[in-house]
Simulated assay, not measured.
Amino acid sequence: MADGAPGLRERKKAETALRIHRTALALFDERGFDEVSVQEIADAAEVSKMTVFNYYGSKEDLIFRPMEEHFQDAVRAVRDRLPGESALEAVRRDFLEMVTARDPSIGLHAEPFGRRIRRVMMTTPALRERAYASSEKGARELADLLTGETGDAVQALIAAATLTAARNALVEEHHRRIDAGESVDTVAADAAARAAHAFALVEHGLGDYARRPA
């Protein structure tokens, strides 16, 4: 086995976790999150109910566990930014790299798996509330990071909220257009330009944005 390569046991555990997750998502998408029991998921995935809970601590984790880390994407980008790079430049660069990679977490992958997760989440009040709370937690962590670096809590909160809102708006637009019938390729084709405009608005401030004609 090559150095760093996962062993057979690790691979089998990863395969089991993925099978449970995909099985649960299919059932949730078909019947609704609240209408599916963990026992039904276990039976469909051909594992025990205890195995489901061993891999996922709760029924909600079956949706959130594989994606929750993405609520910290902006924090990670800023924390790991390059020498001389600003917080905005880091978040913008990271997002544009995800656009180029057609990352599922920003809604640009042709595989509909990520959109099914979002559909289940947005149609289930408890999951939707957890998503909003996780997004807010990510923004707060970014604000805390920036406060620690700059010493200015107010500006850090404003910067974190604005950067997080810009990312969220872009991701939402990807999903909105694809849900409306546009192809992933069409949406991805102008995603970089759309992101550049969004982050330019953040960079230069609102200024004359939406000034009412005299």
Results as ranks from 00 to 15, higher is better:
His174Ser: 07
Ala166Met: 06
Glu89His: 07
Ala156His: 03
His197Arg: 11
Val75Gln: 03
Asp185Asn: 08
Glu10Met: 12
Lys137Gln: 12
Ser134Arg: 06
Ala193Glu: 06
His175Val: 10
Pro66Trp: 03
Arg176Ser: 13
Glu111Ser: 14
Pro66Cys: 11
Ala24Thr: 01
Ile41Arg: 00
Ser134Glu: 11
Val202Ser: 04
Phe199Ile: 00
Asp34Trp: 11
Ala139Ser: 06
Ala90Asn: 06
Glu30Leu: 12
Arg76Phe: 07
Ala160Met: 00
Tyr209Ser: 13
Met122Arg: 15
Ala5Asp: 14
Thr124Ser: 15
Ala188Lys: 01
Val202Leu: 08
Asp94Asn: 12
Arg19Ile: 03
Pro83Gln: 08
Val99Ser: 02
Ser134Phe: 07
Ala110Lys: 14
Arg176Gly: 06
Val36Gly: 03
Arg81Val: 03
Tyr209Asp: 13
Pro83Gly: 06
Pro83Tyr: 04
Arg212Asn: 06
Glu89Ser: 13
Val171Thr: 13
Thr164Arg: 04
Arg211Asp: 11
Arg22His: 09
Asp208His: 12
Asp185Gln: 09
Met50Tyr: 09
Ala193Val: 05
Val91Glu: 02
Glu40Pro: 05
Glu97Tyr: 08
Asp3Asn: 15
Ile63Thr: 04
Tyr55Met: 01
Glu172Ala: 15
Thr23His: 00
Asp103Ile: 02
Val184Ile: 15
His109Leu: 08
Pro6Gly: 10
Ala198Thr: 07
Lys137Arg: 15
Pro104Asp: 09
His197Gly: 09
Gly181Arg: 01
Ala101Met: 08
Met50Glu: 10
Ala169Asn: 09
Ile63Asp: 02
Phe28Pro: 04
Glu182Phe: 03
Phe28Ala: 04
Gly207Pro: 03
Ala214Ile: 08
Leu108His: 01
Ile178Asn: 02
Gly207Arg: 09
Ala193Cys: 05
Glu97Met: 14
Ala2Thr: 13
Leu206Ser: 13
Asp103Ser: 08
Ala166Lys: 02
Glu60Pro: 09
Arg79Thr: 06
Phe28Leu: 12
Tyr209Glu: 14
Val91Asn: 01
Met67Trp: 12
Leu142Glu: 00
Val91Thr: 06
Arg140Glu: 11
Leu157Asn: 12
Thr162His: 10
Glu111Val: 08
Lys137Ile: 05
Thr100Glu: 14
Gly7Arg: 07
Glu85Arg: 04
Arg115Leu: 12
Gly207Gln: 08
Ile20Cys: 01
Glu203Phe: 08
Gly181Trp: 04
Leu18Ala: 10
Arg212Ala: 10
Ala14Gly: 14
Asp185Cys: 08
Leu62Gly: 00
Thr16Tyr: 02
Val184Met: 05
Ile20Gln: 04
Asp80Asn: 14
Val171Gly: 05
Ala26Trp: 00
